[in-house]
Design a protein around this nucleic acid. Structure first.
Length: 320
DNA sequence: AATCAATGCAACCGCCTTAGG
DNA sequence: ACCTAAGGCGGTTGCATTGAT
């Protein structure tokens, strides 16, 4: 077993922290703050490595930490964020003040296990999962959170094979579709036959294959948003030049320059963009046109093909 | 009461990224 | 350009607790 570079001192202690150690760390951080974690153990009189001190502080000792059961709202938010970004626990945690990535990760893994067990007993679904799968466990109860399993039907197919899936009923532009996105961070879920399959768990189907060049050419600055009922979240392309000047809390129309617009609102909470779900002006979907380099807001149902899929960045449900 | 299994969660591991020399 | 240390993060482990028999 190799040790981390910061933990190769002889006297480094491991395992659970004692109350005395906690007290030492709290006393040191509250009086001196933290800058260089590698210096903390020695200065605080601890036989731990700096990394361990950092983890203990961040995950357990810092004063703004929130403990206890997750509220239904938090649960919804976690599910929806996971719906969008996958196992990006730190990202998800950044949306839940006082919660740590570790806590959310543990919660999610426990939650998945429960769902899997429940599913095995009911035998109604065949979604393949492991505890660390990039794919979410889905059952009917999830639809309560806007996590509609009908959108993800292709997840019930074996992702580990090169089977070309039969065209499936488009899950994206259906009237109850959840928000979806392509993550343009550059990370790619997996490769098959030299092609990168678009990131996020919703895009594992062969019809969503993209290559790396396409991914890297996509705009990188996306606007994070959640719907104002907290049910959906995702990203908007950097479509409008004046977004930064929009006043918080006031509705704003996003206009693609062709008269089509949707209503959004910048919410001070989490500094995110909120799509007004009550607005009748929101389009069915929104996508980025690679060639035109602009955002288009669509109102018609479109049957996606492999060629059009690559240009689509995000979508609204028609309930917006 | 004793035993075993399941569960929850704190902590660790290893990899990646970044900054500084 | 390369190396190294530190920080950050996701995956995993292992222990303590809880529940079932």
């Amino acid at each position: 077993m190799g040790q981390h570079s910061c933990c190769n001192q002889q006297k480094v202690k491991r395992g659970l922290w004692s109350p005395e150690e906690d007290e030492k760390l709290i006393r040191f951080i509250t009086t001196h703050g933290y800058g260089c974690w590698s210096e903390v153990p020695e200065k605080a009189g601890l036989q731990r490595c700096g990394k361990s001190c950092r983890l203990r502080w961040i995950n357990y000792l810092r004063p703004d930490i929130r403990r206890g059961k997750f509220s239904p709202d938090e649960e919804k938010l976690i599910i929806n964020l996971h719906n969008v970004v996958g196992n990006k626990w730190a990202h998800i945690a950044s949306h839940l003040p006082g919660r740590t990535d570790n806590e959310i990760k543990n919660y999610w893994n426990s939650w998945i296990k429960k769902k899997i067990n429940r599913k095995h007993s009911s035998t109604s679904m065949t979604t393949r999962l492991s505890s660390t799968s990039k794919c979410a466990s889905i059952d009917q109860s999830n639809s309560d959170y806007g996590y509609n399993p009908t959108h993800l039907s292709f997840l019930t197919q074996d992702m580990g094979t090169n089977n070309i899936k039969q065209p499936i009923q488009d899950p994206i532009f259906s009237s109850t579709s959840t928000i979806f996105m392509l993550d343009t961070s550059g990370s790619v879920l997996e490769e098959q036959n030299g092609d990168c399959i678009a990131q996020t768990e919703y895009f594992n189907d062969s019809m969503w294959q993209m290559n790396k060049n396409q991914l890297s050419e996509l705009p990188s600055q996306m606007l994070n948003y959640t719907t104002n009922n907290g049910m959906n979240s995702g990203y908007l392309p950097p479509l409008m030049e004046n977004l930064e000047s929009i006043i918080e809390g006031q509705n704003c129309h996003l206009n693609n320059g062709e008269g089509r617009e949707c209503l959004i609102q910048k919410q001070h909470v989490f500094n995110e963009w909120v799509v007004d779900q009550t607005s009748q002006q929101c389009p069915n979907y929104l996508f980025w046109d690679d060639e035109q380099q602009e955002v288009q807001l669509g109102e018609e149902m479109v049957t996606p093909s492999s060629s059009t899929m690559g240009s689509i960045l995000s979508s609204y449900p028609t309930t917006l």
